[in-house]
């Protein structure tokens, strides 16, 4: 086993996921299976292969520095669970 249940809990915490005890067990098994597979891939000799920066071969997809119309405030706030003063409103975080 490469990772223990504690690491699953830690990653879960970082991702703000609430995991049940069953899920923690399940994900520990699954994540270890993924890591085992990576290990398998590592057996291949890739020393002569260029690193893949991205799955598509495009480079430098850029746009000119031109201003476009933004969304009106109402539209930007439309999906907000809570809003006031033209802003998204959240529990105080200071």
């Amino acid at each position: 086993m490469k990772i223990e249940i504690g690491e699953v809990e830690y990653v879960g915490r970082l991702a703000r996921l609430k995991l049940s005890e069953e899920e923690k067990e399940l994900f520990t098994v699954q994540l270890n299976a993924i890591l085992d597979y990576m290990e398998k891939l590592n057996e291949l000799d890739t020393s002569a292969v260029e690193p893949t920066f991205h799955v598509v071969s495009h480079r430098n997809t850029v746009r000119e520095d031109e201003m476009r119309k933004s969304y009106p405030q109402e539209a930007s706030l439309e999906n907000a669970p809570d809003k006031a003063k033209g802003c998204f409103r959240v529990p105080k975080i200071i």
Binding site: D65, E66, M67, R68, S70, P72, Q73, S76, K85, G86
Partner: peptide
Amino acid sequence: ESKIFCGCSAVFGGEPNTHTC
């Protein structure tokens, strides 16, 4: 003039949430 990944204004200030997309 515009933001790094979209065309919204990068200018300081403005009414809240009006330089957004």
